[in-house]
């Protein structure tokens, strides 16, 4: 027997009690709104192709990085609005805000667009965190206010000059892509400073960072995608969902092409999702929110280990 304390949970038992209360609150919130709770497989034969999200593979398939594809198949099958609280897994390092296994809340609202869904995110955060109503600002306006340039007009040379002037990178800016530069400026110069008083909902991300969101019909430079930030933390990511099967297939294929040119393995795209979109996904908006981070904010925790029973290092 060793005297090691590694067997013990890293979260105080009181924090685990707060986690249970939070889950009860979330379930009550959706139950009152007639949103159906569902479960979908954690283990799948398919995986995300997203260039910046790496799945954990097992001898039987892949652990999900989010329940998005299966939930969209339920929507196409006529489920109506649904929510899920589940574990998601990403091949990532651990950090202050990261554990390779984490709890995700994901929900889809039939008939909503991203603005109506943002209003619901706002309502949920007010209930759970007892915080002030969310502020709303476009990605473009946020850059203009915080770093004094228009991200929809700036080109790569401009961004490279900007990060050089601010001495942000250790390496050469020319080795970074346009989107990586925009994102690093956002993460270092903007994210730590926004949403200090009330959560902020940022919408209208550049179309090049659309992921699974629709392209805006009025301004094709932006996607109908939003993110929630509070106290400098990325809390949620939502879309007015792409429902075009051909476009979805093209995005999967171009992701896999990017993967091949960046020493990453091709991922088996979820053909069932493509078929479901072809059969018809109702107009809907969906959002994923990190439950561990939400609990951290509620408790004022400074490290994710404080809200997890056993982080990966002890799992």
């Amino acid at each position: 027997m060793s005297d090691s304390l590694q067997w013990q949970p890293t979260a105080p038992i009181d924090n685990l009690r707060a986690r249970a209360e939070l889950l009860t609150q979330v379930r009550a919130f959706f139950s009152a709104r007639n949103v159906l709770e569902v479960e979908t497989p954690v283990l799948s034969q398919h995986a995300t192709t997203d260039c910046h999200i790496q799945s954990i593979s097992t001898s039987h398939g892949f652990l999900q990085t989010s329940p998005e594809f299966a939930m969209k198949r339920l929507l196409a099958a006529g489920s109506g609005s649904i929510f899920q609280i589940c574990k998601a897994f990403r091949q990532e390092e651990s950090g202050r805000w990261h554990n390779p296994e984490f709890t995700m809340l994901e929900w889809y609202r039939v008939g909503f667009d991203h603005h109506t869904l943002m209003a619901e995110v706002d309502a949920l955060l007010q209930v759970v965190l007892a915080c002030q109503p969310c502020e709303k600002i476009s990605y473009q306006q946020l850059f203009i206010e915080r770093v004094d340039f228009d991200p929809l007009v700036a080109d790569k040379a401009f961004l490279s000059d900007y990060v050089r002037q601010k001495h942000l990178l250790a390496g050469d800016a020319d080795d970074w892509s346009f989107d990586d530069l925009l994102q690093v400026i956002f993460n270092l110069q903007i994210e730590p400073h926004i949403g200090q008083q009330a959560p902020v909902l940022v919408y209208g991300y550049p179309a090049s960072q659309s992921a699974l969101a629709r392209i805006n019909t009025e301004d094709p430079r932006v996607a109908d995608r939003f993110e929630a930030y509070y106290k400098g933390v990325e809390l949620a990511n939502g879309f007015f969902e792409l429902s075009n099967a051909d476009e979805q297939r093209q995005r999967f294929e171009s992701d896999n092409h990017w993967r091949r040119t960046h020493d990453l393995a091709d991922m088996p795209m979820d053909v069932h999702l493509i078929d479901a979109l072809a059969a018809g996904l109702p107009d809907c908006a969906g959002v994923a929110l990190g439950i561990d981070r939400l609990l951290m904010l509620k408790l004022g925790a400074t490290h994710i280990d404080q809200v997890l029973s056993f982080p990966f290092s002890r799992a």
């Binding site: 990532e92 390092e93 651990s94 950090g95 989107d179 994102q183 993460n187 993110e227």
Partner: peptide, 9 residues
């Protein structure tokens, strides 16, 4: 370690 949900780590 910084890793945005959708983006470069």
């Amino acid at each position: 370690y910084v890793k945005p949900g959708k983006g470069q780590a």
